[in-house]
């Protein structure tokens, strides 16, 4: 993944809040994740990637941030299912929006929403993901990008 592509993910993460009229998010400098210390908060929305790239993307956030985001969006239901729904939807939006830069062959799956912080993280084909840190209000979350260009013929 080159700088322009990585910047596209950071820009997308920043614009997610702005586009909905929410207080702006601060996006930190992306860095390579240490697989021994995976960046995972309480809830995670995972998107599979295929087509021109392969791998996965996930958005991970603490429960308090997702609950706060729901209220900010006018949703009064902050039950477990709704939080899982939201974390999946955010992952879907962030990964779908980068098609502005990565193009229509950057194919995304519907989200898989997960709860919990695993002790270990297994990445596709041993890839080392980039972490895009997100700070919104007082909360820390992250967009984790684990993709590589797919050069297979056909």
């Amino acid at each position: 993944m080159n700088d322009q592509q990585l910047t596209a993910f950071a820009t997308t993460a920043r614009d997610y809040f702005k586009a909905q009229g929410l207080p702006p998010a601060e996006i930190g400098n992306p860095y390579l994740m240490d697989l021994a210390e995976p960046v995972v908060y309480h809830y995670t929305g995972l998107i599979g990637i295929n087509g021109s790239f392969s791998g996965c993307i996930y958005y991970t956030a603490p429960k308090a941030m997702l609950s706060h985001l729901l209220v900010s969006l006018g949703d009064l239901d902050s039950g477990e299912d709704t939080i899982l729904d939201l974390v999946g939807e955010v992952a879907n939006v962030l990964s779908g929006n980068v098609r502005r830069v990565l193009g229509e062959n950057f194919l995304i799956t519907p989200p898989l929403a997960l709860k919990g912080e695993p002790e270990h993280l297994r990445t596709p084909m041993g890839m080392r993901p980039y972490v895009v840190p997100i700070r919104w209000k007082s909360y820390h979350a992250a967009l984790v990008v684990c993709i590589e260009a797919d050069h297979r013929p056909g």
Binding site: L94, G96, N97, G103
Partner: peptide
Amino acid sequence: ALADKATCIRALQLGAHGFLTK
């Protein structure tokens, strides 16, 4: 969420009347 122009054009060609990006 799919923000590329090609998808927007395709949706409109297939019969949609408007397209908004999430």
